[in-house]
Amino acid sequence: MNQTASVANETVDYGRQREPLSLLRLVTNLYFLYSVSLLSFFVIWDRVAEYHLLGDALVRPHLVALQLYQLTQMKFAGQNLMGHIWASTQRILVGFSIASVIAVPLGLFMALNKYANAIVKPVFDLFKPMPPIAWVSISILWFGIGEASKVFIIIIGTFVPCLLNAYNGVRLVEPELYDVVRVLGGKRRDEIVQVCFPASFPAIFAGLQISLSIAWTCVLAAELMSSRDGLGFLIKRGMDTHKPALVLGGMVLIAVAAWSTSQILGLVERKICPWKRSIENL
């Protein structure tokens, strides 16, 4: 969902460019406003925490930073900070890879073969409205509280958007593009290889992005329920021992980690589909 900026149609107001520098201009300068916004966010947070307006459940920002710094210095529950980050990330990578490797080809196949679609789609539709987090309990029943149950939830959560986007990606291909291949002498196989797959790439990547953010929610839920390491574990431990600094530190880390993975995925996409801009700028 990072496309907001590129979708925007900004009207250029040339009159404004010649205005002399004034207080009003400074106040409406976007970067000035951004700094004001960030600054006041942290100041308000700091003041609220300082005067205990929310009880003792909020700590001042610098204490969160300090907590994070301490975590990098010492081991916490047998792992240092990188260890916890990697524990969560690893689960996501495993679950996410398994789900996408199965779901994307299945989605493509369903879109191309109406019989496969008629058989798989109804069962798939049964599972679709069920939130992935609802699977947490049953996956613990099935796989215990180890890695397998966490990976399973991530697979369940990421499977749906991967499959759905691959499916819709193919269904929304401009049909005349198939005509081009047919007129040039291509067979059904050529239509699929030359048109279907490449044309559905952007949709598949959009599905992967959605999946990734769901995967972070899922891993967090699984780790909050039961775990011995990972970012969710940090947050849970902070909750159980009533250490708001640890909870907030965990939230910051998870935000950073989720944001970074989605940026990396975006980078991969730009590498694989350098032509994608044409569709976005339509």
């Binding site: 409406t28 976007l30 000035f32 406003l33 951004y34 004001v36 916004s37 960030l38 966010f41 929310l54 009880g55 459940a57 909020l58 987090i133 953010s213 972070w216 929610t217 967090l220 839920a221 909050l224 969710g232 947050i235 849970k236 902070g238 909750m239 009533h242 708001p244 909870v247 907030l248 965990g250 939230m251 998870i254 935000a255 950073v256 989720a258 944001w259 989605s262």
Partner: peptide, 25 residues
Amino acid sequence: GLTRPVFEMIRPIPPIAWIPLTVFW
């Protein structure tokens, strides 16, 4: 200008990460 940075900061946090804080609050 005033809301976007804060919004962008909070957005990547999965909502259930807020559970401990809401329990405290």
